[in-house]
Simulated assay, not measured.
Amino acid sequence: MSNRLAIACRDQAVHCDRLGSPFMVKLMGLLADNSATHPALRSWENQFSGDISPAGISLPLRIAGGLQYLVVARKSTALAACYPPNEVPDAALWDAVDTALISNPEFWNAWLENAPQTNEVRRSVALIAAAHYLAAQTTLPFHLSELGASAGLNLMFDQFSMQAGPNSFGDASSVHLTPDWIGTPPEARSIKVASRRGVDLNPLDSQDPETQLRLLAYLWADQPERATLTKAAIAIQNASVDQGDAIEWLESRLSAPFDGLHLIYHTIAWQYFPETAQAKGASLIESSGESATADRPLAWLRMENDGSSPGAALTLRLWPGDLTVQLGRVDFHGRWMDWQAPQTLDWIR
């Protein structure tokens, strides 16, 4: 019988390597090497049926997140002493991890039930670029609807700043993004956001101290810049995130058109919706798009894994006209952008 957890951890290690986290590669390797004999790891593998890999429920990331939580919440000084920026031999790290895994089973039983929620702030590099690209087409105010919004940090993208090649976007901000940029970036434009709202099955209150620890727990220990950006985004977050099914929420959101541009978007979220929900969601957006006008246009922005590499596809679909624009590809964590959008667009100007 195959060791599903070992396979899932080694798969996750490949992704962590691509995303620049040597520590997570090491941690995933240790979990894989010991998964067949460790009582807690064996129990958790048996607890979850189906796909536990990064493409499924992501059990390796759930475990890693729980360990990181014990560090950031100061629940385990022994584990913290073995985590970055400290460097220790693999044997010492495993001893600390081993102890943490078998301690406090009540904590682990509760923690593992919840899916990872990183709310990766750097994904806003795609949102900022696309929004300025859209603003070249219309001066209408934006109404934002984010599916899978988690804590709503990326609902605030217009209040972040970004340096993309020679172009600067946004006013000075504590959340400043500096992706490696390929291609000619769009021109910086004036963007007015008239309303913003998101939905998530398990929305996180970013102003709650315990929730803040949970957000930080899913950021990898050897990438402190992600934690810095997340804390800065938390400080300015004031958008509402509703609890509920994303497609049911979207149906209600589309029931009355906005006075301005309605921008629907999601970043690495659509793949987690059931296929029936995806089909219904696409149908709802397309149906609403049929009644869009130049005064009330509709835009659907997707940053999603399309099975190709590197990174995720960034696609924009626009109504009226049902125009699809391939904007390029973007790193899953927003570290780089390969901007491929046409410089001119014949839409509603």
Rank of each mutant, 00 (worst) to 15 (best):
Ala73Trp: 08
Asp245Arg: 07
Gly198Asn: 03
Ser168Asp: 07
Glu251Asp: 14
Asp322Lys: 15
Ile247Trp: 07
Leu134Cys: 03
Ala100Leu: 09
Pro320Ser: 06
Gly289Gln: 05
Gly198Lys: 00
Leu219Val: 12
Ala92Pro: 05
Ser190Trp: 00
Gln278Arg: 15
Ala136Glu: 08
Ala235Glu: 14
Leu323Trp: 09
Leu93Arg: 07
Glu113Met: 12
Asn238Ile: 11
Gly311Val: 06
Gln278Cys: 14
Asp200Met: 01
Glu45Met: 11
Gln237Gly: 10
Asn109Arg: 15
Lys26Thr: 13
Ala36Arg: 06
Ser103Arg: 09
Ile182Ser: 13
Tyr272Cys: 02
Leu127Asn: 04
Leu254Tyr: 10
Gly50Phe: 01
Tyr265Thr: 00
Leu314Ile: 12
Trp94Asp: 03
Ser174Cys: 06
Val330Leu: 13
Ala115Cys: 04
His15Tyr: 10
Gly334Arg: 02
Ile236Pro: 06
Asp346Asn: 15
Ile247Ala: 11
Arg10Tyr: 11
Gly65Cys: 06
Asn46Ala: 14
Ser308Phe: 10
Trp111Met: 11
Met156Glu: 15
Val325Phe: 06
Pro116Val: 03
Gln207Tyr: 05
Glu187Thr: 14
Ala32Cys: 08
Asn238Cys: 11
Leu27Phe: 08
Ser124Ile: 00
Val199Cys: 11
Pro54Glu: 07
Ala92Arg: 13
Val97Asp: 08
Ala64Trp: 01
Glu225Val: 11
Val88Trp: 09
Arg226Gln: 15
Gly281Thr: 03
Pro186Gly: 04
Ala110Lys: 12
Thr293Ile: 08
Leu201Ala: 05
Asp259Trp: 05
His333Met: 05
Arg226Cys: 08
Leu284Trp: 12
Trp319Asp: 04
Gly50His: 01
Ser206Gln: 14
Ala232Arg: 01
Leu19Ile: 04
Val14Cys: 07
Ala279Leu: 11
Thr178Asp: 08
Ala299Met: 02
Cys9Lys: 02
Arg62Asp: 00
Met24Asn: 09
Leu41Pro: 03
Trp336Glu: 04
Val125Glu: 00
Ala135Thr: 02
Thr211His: 12
Pro186Thr: 01
Pro39Phe: 05
Ala269Lys: 07
Phe107Lys: 02
Trp220Phe: 13
Leu70Phe: 10
Val241Ile: 13
Asp51Arg: 05
Leu301Phe: 04
Ser76Cys: 08
Arg349Trp: 02
Leu59Glu: 02
Ala341Trp: 02
Pro105Gly: 10
Ala164His: 01
Pro89His: 08
